[in-house]
Design a protein around this nucleic acid. Structure first.
Lengths: 129, 129
DNA sequence: CCTTGTTCCTGTAGCTGCTACAGGATGTAG
DNA sequence: CTACATCCTGTAGCAGCTACAGGAACAAGG
């Protein structure tokens, strides 16, 4: 199948597919006589794998490692788990940061609605006096 | 004060201060005869403002707008509030996304610990079968 | 066979928000 | 007067794409 169809099937942008090939994340497919890429179902699965991993927030370096570990099926689960739980830690840290953010912002914007302050509550919070 | 002291006082990297100047976020200070930047307390306050706003997740475009609105004190609070609450929406969306992520990852990594699956649970979830 | 329209190709540059050099000039303390 | 810290400019790099420009290839209709 040509790149456009692969793009439609996986929901990954054509430019992004070529980008993944360029950085060596997705294997380069064979070409037609005219030079167009022809993909098979193996490529489709690999790209779908990458896409799901991206949706879960894994970085491309992690995904590269995961793809490598996905080949010899069976023994390397411990390594996979290490990558995944490191990423989970990361996500939890970001979550905590964002929650703190949300709290402060919500509070400050809330003051705007109550309209009791003489100066803008948002600028007030940002201004170091 | 020279740039290094400003950096220490605000916790903003020297390179970042120069970067802010280059993109027109922080006004260019006067220089010594030898060409070194000399900052005053106004610069310090502006930079501290920028820093707090960055910590709250505002983008540089938003900060540029906020800085402009911070000058004519008093009337433009509505615009400030619009920027802040748009950002708050953004933060809440990201928060929801991350929470979903966290849930899926935690569940999957949890399966690894229970060790009952024949194949790696993480790879299993990523693999589109 | 020829045209039209779509798809595809390569290569480069842009985005955000910094950070990290290289290679040199300047300021300050002993 | 010499060290040494601090500063200068300019460029290039990071993630992870996205958006062109300028051209070639293919499928379908006449």
């Amino acid at each position: 199948m040509p790149i456009g169809m692969l793009s439609r099937k996986t929901g990954v942008n054509i430019e992004t597919i070529r980008y993944y090939e360029r950085i060596g994340l997705l294997p380069a497919p064979p070409r037609t006589a005219g030079g167009r890429r022809i993909y098979d179902d193996g490529h489709r699965r690999a790209l779908a794998f990458i896409r799901r991993a991206r949706e879960l927030g894994f970085g491309l370096a992690d995904i590269r490692a995961l793809l490598a570990l996905a080949r010899p099926h069976g023994e390397s689960c411990a390594q996979v788990e290490r990558i995944a739980s490191a990423h989970l830690d990361d996500v939890r840290n970001k979550l905590a940061d964002l929650a703190r953010l949300e709290h402060i912002l919500a509070e400050t914007v809330g003051k705007c609605a109550r309209e009791t302050a003489p100066t803008c509550p948002v600028l007030n919070m940002l201004d170091p006096g």
